[in-house]
Amino acid sequence: MARTRSENYDDIQQGILNAACALFAQQGYMRASIADLADACQISRGALYHYFDSKEAILCAILDAHVRRMIADVETAMARQTNNLDRFRAAIRAIVELNARSSNEQRLILNDLTFLSEAEQTAVKALQRQLVDTVSDLLIRLDTEGRIVKRSKKVYTMMLFGMLNFSHTWYDPKGDIAPQEFADMVVDQFLYGFTAPAAKAAPARKQHA
């Protein structure tokens, strides 16, 4: 007979994900055992299996939820804006702010995605492509000089994501530069650069002064 769910099932399940995410980020997914997970979650191994079939299922749930949250945050932020530049800036802010709150998840998705099954990797990567395509489309709309062509589209897009995805290795969101300011620095640097004419850089500074 199947076990019934407790009233606080979802809360306990989310608590497991939170504890597991911190453990995997600190200790490493492969080095963390089921016993380590049970200790981190303060439940028995038997109880742990009531909520997740395996350690891999926990990792998959963490990564899937993180990417879905990023997509939702970006879409919500973009929906509040009326022009492409503001949509782009809002999208980058949403990504930076979520990563600032979720540095453990960001480490896992960069380092441990390959430990999932092929089918699970495919599913998570499909979500990632959805996000990348959204940002790439914004870049193309902002590209008034026609620099982004078929052969360079991926390069430009991944240059931008390279600035964002690995910031957790050095960026401290509690430091002098807050996440929103950091996001604006990324946008201005990527779109205008240090040596851009003042006429190009001025609109962004004026708009967000």
Rank of each mutant, 00 (worst) to 15 (best):
M1S: 14
T4R: 12
R5A: 04
E7P: 09
Q13T: 13
Q14W: 14
G15M: 08
I16E: 10
I16Q: 13
A19V: 07
A19T: 08
C21L: 03
L23A: 13
F24D: 06
F24N: 07
Y29V: 13
M30T: 13
S33A: 11
I34H: 02
I34E: 14
Q42N: 13
I43T: 05
I43C: 08
S44A: 04
G46A: 04
G46C: 01
G46E: 02
Y49S: 05
Y51D: 03
E56W: 01
L59D: 04
L63K: 08
R69K: 13
V74F: 02
T76Q: 12
T76A: 14
A77T: 06
A79P: 02
T82I: 10
R87K: 15
F88M: 06
I92L: 13
A94H: 02
E97C: 10
N99I: 10
A100N: 04
R107T: 14
R107G: 02
L108D: 09
L108E: 11
I109G: 03
N111A: 15
L113T: 12
L116G: 10
T122G: 10
A123G: 02
L127N: 05
L127H: 11
Q128V: 14
L131I: 03
V132M: 08
S136K: 11
S136E: 09
L139A: 09
L142S: 05
T144S: 12
E145T: 15
R147V: 05
I148V: 14
I148L: 12
S152R: 09
K153V: 11
T157K: 09
T157H: 06
M158Q: 11
L160W: 03
F161T: 07
M163V: 05
F166K: 12
F166E: 12
F166P: 00
H168V: 15
H168G: 01
T169L: 15
Y171Q: 07
D172Y: 10
P173V: 08
P173K: 07
K174I: 01
P179N: 01
P179M: 05
P179V: 03
P179I: 07
F182Q: 03
A183K: 07
D184I: 06
D184W: 00
V186H: 00
V187E: 00
V187C: 07
Y192M: 10
T195G: 00
T195C: 04
A198E: 09
P203S: 00
P203E: 00
A204V: 04
R205M: 05
K206Y: 02
Q207Y: 00
A209Y: 04
